[in-house]
């Protein structure tokens, strides 16, 4: 059966994921070492150890994302995170930074290493990481087609993990500077894309608006569905040019979420080992519902039965879903 890798932002969400049928749960420490460094979220070393024990007692495993890029001269927090993940009994750590990977491979040679999507690695780079540091799995970015994933799997000799549900990052992950441009903080260095500290909601002329770092991201009628305000999914007006009229719309990407349920059989044939659900910032209710639905889906694929579908639309950002780049025509 394909492995289901599920998010947990809190110990309660970890238990919910395991109870709902997650094979593997990923989480992070409550600091800037992971790319979901949001207020009120994440784990202490003790909570992680308790989570690993809870999962292990039920046949599940825990991965720890330490996938931001350490600041030069200030690597101690990241090194400590790797040591604490190993001490807690984590199955593997998910890393992005070359220096941190080198440190983990040297200081903890028995620790299983996964390459984060934040590393934005191509096949040559993946092979380099595997040969040099013993990386065992790579998380692929959400901008590839199924055919491209098939081709990558032919070129590399490590497991691949792909996103199948949740927030859809459309940029070169680990390289995107949009959040940094608007707020000075980024997922890559600070663990926050569009940090809540820079988000302001307001009401203007009977409409709700959301701003990020002062930039107006969207304005919608009161009570209408609205996504979290990120620059890449904002509604903007591009002025008229010599070649075209002014346009208002989601110029980078529509505020929709990824739902690749229907592509699971093709991803399996493409050689993908594990299916990843995004959403460490979401609640235990979300985790339980999504994990249960995807566990049913991977079991159906394994049994050759029809796929269940349409169960999760309400949980998606903007209340709409897409199969993303896996089967996409770019604008």
């Amino acid at each position: 059966m394909m492995e289901l890798v599920c998010p947990a932002g809190t110990p309660a969400a970890l238990r919910a994921a395991v109870d709902a049928g997650a094979h593997t749960v990923y989480c992070g420490f409550a600091n800037e070492t992971n790319a979901r460094n949001f207020p009120g979220l994440n784990f202490s070393a003790q909570e992680l150890a308790e989570g690993v024990a809870y999962a292990a007692a039920r046949g599940a495993r825990v991965l720890v994302a330490i996938n931001t890029f350490p600041r030069a001269g200030d690597q101690a927090i990241w090194h400590r995170a790797v040591a604490e993940a190993r001490a807690a009994g984590a199955h593997a750590v998910i890393l992005a930074d070359l220096g941190l990977i080198a440190h983990a491979a040297e200081a903890h040679p028995d620790l299983r290493l996964h390459l984060s999507v934040q590393a934005a690695a191509n096949p040559d780079a993946i092979n380099f990481y595997a040969e040099t540091f013993g990386i065992r799995r790579v998380v692929l970015p959400r901008v590839l087609t199924v055919e491209e994933i098939t081709a990558i799997n032919r070129e590399i000799d490590v497991e691949t993990e792909v996103f199948v549900f949740g927030g859809l990052c459309v940029m070169a992950e680990g390289r995107c500077s949009l959040s940094s441009y608007a707020t000075g903080l980024s997922p890559n260095m600070n663990g926050v894309c569009s940090p809540a500290s820079h988000v302001v909601y307001g009401e203007v002329g009977g409409q709700n608006e959301a701003r990020l770092g002062g930039f107006l991201i969207h304005r919608r009628p009161k009570g209408a569905p609205a996504p979290y305000p990120t620059l890449c999914k904002g509604c903007f007006t591009a002025p008229a040019t010599a070649t075209g009229a002014a346009q208002t719309g989601h110029l980078f990407e529509d505020p929709v979420s990824l739902d690749a349920t229907e592509l699971i059989p093709r991803l399996r044939r493409a050689g993908v080992t594990a299916l990843k659900i995004e959403g460490r910032q979401r609640s235990r209710a979300y985790v339980a519902q999504v994990v249960r639905a995807f566990r049913a889906a991977v079991e159906a694929v394994e049994a050759g039965a029809p796929l269940p579908s349409g169960l999760l639309a309400k949980l998606t950002e903007g209340q709409a879903a897409t199969t993303g780049a896996y089967a996409k025509t770019w604008r």
Partner: peptide, 30 residues
């Protein structure tokens, strides 16, 4: 129900310090 889903659908609205709201929501969920 998921707090984000309630927010995305407009059933819950937030104002003021967004970080504080997120922290409260996550703390209560845990």
């Amino acid at each position: 129900e998921d707090g984000d889903a309630l927010f995305f659908s407009g059933e819950l609205q937030i104002g003021g310090d967004t970080s504080a709201v997120l922290a409260l929501r996550n703390a209560l969920d845990d």
